[in-house]
Design a protein around this nucleic acid. Structure first.
Lengths: 352, 352
DNA sequence: GGCGCCAGTGGGACCGTTACCACTCCCCGC
DNA sequence: GCGGGGAGTGGTAACGGTCCCACTGGCGCC
C-alpha cells in the first residue's frame, strides 16, 4: 500500500465500471427519481456500498447550479442570543436539506465583507446576516451592492435582526420588535413607579440600540415623564464587564436613579453585580431589567425581568423566507413580536 | 431585462474576454503567484472589478483537490461550553484560510452519521466531532470506519473532547482531562470536610461522564473515604431542569449529603435552585460545585466553584492538529489540562 | 401488421477552474 | 550571429457530476 498523499474518493465512474452500467445510469440511481430497472438499481447500489462512494457536491454544484448550501454570518457564536438564532437557522436549513456555512466577525465590518465574499465563492443559496449592525450611509450602500450581487447570482441576502434596506433592494429582512419591546418594558418600570431610569446600552448608530432607545423614549413621553439626557450610558460593549463598570461608576457618582434598563441580559448581569458590590439590593434599592431572555436570566438571583425575543424563531423564519419563497419573488419583510417576562429583579422604588 | 430565474455569476471566461487575455492569464492573476506583466495584471483586475467576478469554489475544488473547507459537528451550539469550542474551531480555521461547515445532532448518533456524510460530500479537509459520545463497541467500529473512509479521501477525523479510537485508526483526538479535573475538584470538597457527596450526572456510557465519575471515585479512594453507591444520580440530561429535579427529589427524600458534585455548570445551576427552593442555603447547608466554568458560573449567587476547561483552546488545538500537521503523519493525541476555580458555592459542612 | 410510444439505457456536451505543456519574444553570453 | 533560457502568455485536458438527446426493444392499438 503506497502512501500516495493525493488519494482519491471513488467516483461515479468507478461505480459504473464495477456495476457494468453507464455513468448516466449511476447518476440516475443516486438521484433516485428516474426510471431504472429494479435489477440494475440493486446492482448499482451494491457497487456504491462496496466502493464506499459518496457524491461530490462540487461537481454537482458546477453542473447543476443550485447549491443546497446556505451561509450565516454572526458576530460571535458565544453570545447566547446569537446562539439561539444560529440554532434556528441551522435546524430549519437542515430540514430543507441544506447545509450551513458559518463565519464570525466580532462586529468588524471588514470581516463581515470578507465572510460574504467567501459565501459568494461557495455559491451559497442564501446568506444570513445575524444581529444588529452599525448603520450609516456607507453601510447601506455596501449592503445594497451586496444584495444586488447576490441577487444577480441567483442567491439571496437575508438580514436577521436588522432593518430592511429599502424598496428595490433585493434583500429580505426578518426583524423582531426592538422598539415595541423596549416600550413595553419601560412602561412596566414606569407602572411600578420608576421615574428616573438609567439606560445602559451600545452606540446609537447600532440598529439594535437605536430601536430600543427609541422605544424607551416613546414610553417616557407617552407617560408624560421627562427624559434626563444625563441618564444614558451609551457606547458600552454588550458584555458583563461593561455593564458592571458603567453601573459601578454611576453608583460611585451618587445614585440618582431607581432602575437600570440594561440593553441586554448579559449587561444586566453585570449591572446587578455592580449594585450588589455597592452594598445595595436588587430590587429593593435598584431595579434592574434586561433584554433578550437568555437562559441566564432565570438563573440570576433575583431572576431577571426582561423581554423575550424569539431568536430561534427569527432564524427559522429567515430560512423559510429565503428558501421556501416561491419563484415569483415577493419581498417579505417580517417583524416578530416580543413580550415582557416579569420576574423578580424589578420592584417599586423606595420613594413610591 | 428578462427575469430569468437561473442567472449566472460572471466567470473567468467573461473576465478574459473583457480584458482581452486568455483564461490562463486570468487564473494566474487571481491566484496571484505566477509571472504576469504588471500592465496585464492591472487590466485583468479592472475587468474583475467591473464584472464583479468572484471565483467559484466548486470549480476550484473539482480541479485542484484541496477544499479549504472544514466541518464541525456538535450536539447543540446553544450549550455555552460547546459554543466556546466552536468559536475556537472557527477562529483557528479562519486564520488558516478555511471556512467552516456546521451541523448539529442533538446527541443523536443517526444525525451524527448523516452530518458526517454531508461533510464527506463537501469533501471537507477535516471533520471535527465536538463533545462526548455514548461509547460502545458499535460506536467504535462505526467511527473507525468513518476515520478510514475519511483518511482514504485525504481528509481527517478529529475527536474533540472524546477519547482516541485506538492505534492504527487514522483519527486524531484532542481531549481535556475529565478524570483529573474531577479528581481535583473532589479533593477540594474532601479537603473542606465533605464526606458524603451527591454526584449528579449523565449516563456512564457517555465518555465525559465516565471520565468524571472515575476521577471522583479515585479521589474518594485516595482520601480513604467510602463511596456510597446510593449517592449517584446518573442518567440525567445536562440541563438546568434535570439538575433541579434530581436534587429536589433527593432533598425531599431526606438530606443525606453535604455537597453536590454537578457534572456541568448548567446542571449545577439547577441544583442550586433546588437547594434554595427547599429553603436551604448554599454553601451553608449544601455545597454545590460544577464543571466547565462557563460564563454563568460567575453570575450565579453564590458564584460557582467549578473546573475550568479550556474549550476554546480545545477547538484551536484540534484545528491545528488537523490542518498544520506536516505531510508525514504522526498521530498526535493531545490532553489539555484543567484546574479548579474556587468561588463561593462550596464551604465547610455544618458538621465539620 | 405496421406504427407510435415508452421504459430503460448509453453517449456525449457542459459547468468553471487549474495544471501542464507549448509557444513566442527578447535578452544575454560566447 | 547564434544558441539558450526565462518571462509572459495561450491552448487544452482533466476534475466529477447532471442533463439532454438518441437509441433499442417490447407492447398496445388501430
Amino acid at each position: 500500500m503506497p502512501d500516495d498523499p493525493d488519494r482519491r474518493q471513488s467516483t461515479i465512474k468507478d461505480v459504473a465500471e464495477r456495476a457494468g452500467v453507464s455513468l448516466s445510469t449511476v447518476s440516475r440511481v443516486v438521484a433516485g427519481n428516474y426510471p431504472v430497472a429494479q435489477a440494475t438499481r440493486t446492482r448499482v447500489q451494491r457497487a456504491i456500498e462496496e466502493l464506499n462512494y459518496v457524491a461530490n457536491t462540487h461537481a454537482r454544484a458546477l453542473g447543476g447550479g443550485a447549491t443546497r448550501t446556505v451561509g450565516f454570518i454572526v458576530n460571535d457564536v458565544r453570545g447566547p442570543a446569537f446562539a439561539e438564532a444560529v440554532h434556528g437557522v441551522e435546524q430549519e436549513a437542515a430540514r430543507l436539506g441544506h447545509i450551513c456555512l458559518v463565519a464570525t466577525t466580532d462586529g468588524d465590518p471588514a470581516r463581515e465583507l470578507a465572510a460574504i465574499r467567501l459565501m459568494r465563492e461557495q455559491r451559497a443559496a442564501a446568506v444570513f446576516l445575524i444581529g444588529g449592525a452599525t448603520d450609516s450611509a456607507a453601510y447601506r450602500a455596501r449592503m445594497a451592492d451586496i444584495a444586488r450581487s447576490l441577487d444577480a447570482a441567483g442567491s439571496r441576502l437575508v438580514l436577521c435582526g436588522r432593518p430592511p434596506l429599502g424598496d428595490g433592494i433585493p434583500a429580505t429582512a426578518v426583524e423582531y420588535d426592538n422598539e415595541g419591546g423596549a416600550y413595553a418594558l419601560t412602561g412596566f418600570l414606569v407602572g411600578r413607579g420608576h421615574r428616573r431610569i438609567l439606560y445602559v446600552g451600545g452606540d446609537l448608530t447600532f440598529t439594535t440600540t437605536a430601536g430600543r432607545v427609541a422605544g424607551f423614549r416613546r414610553a417616557m413621553a407617552d407617560f408624560g415623564l421627562p427624559v434626563d439626557e444625563g441618564l444614558f450610558e451609551l457606547g458600552a460593549q454588550f458584555t458583563r464587564a461593561a455593564g458592571y463598570e458603567r453601573v459601578s461608576a454611576r453608583l460611585r457618582g451618587g445614585r440618582d436613579f431607581t432602575a437600570v434598563f440594561a440593553e441586554t441580559d448579559v449587561v444586566a448581569a453585570g449591572a446587578m453585580a455592580a449594585v450588589f458590590d455597592a452594598g445595595l439590593g436588587v430590587p429593593e434599592d435598584v431595579s434592574v431589567v434586561g433584554y433578550d431572555d437568555i437562559p441566564l436570566a432565570t438563573d440570576l438571583r433575583p431572576a431577571l425581568t426582561t423581554v423575550r425575543v424569539p431568536y430561534e424563531e427569527l432564524g427559522r423564519a429567515a430560512v423559510r423566507a429565503a428558501l421556501e419563497r416561491p419563484a415569483g419573488r415577493p419581498e417579505p419583510h417580517q417583524m416578530l413580536g416580543t413580550h415582557v417576562i416579569i420576574r423578580q429583579s424589578a420592584g417599586r422604588p423606595a420613594s413610591a
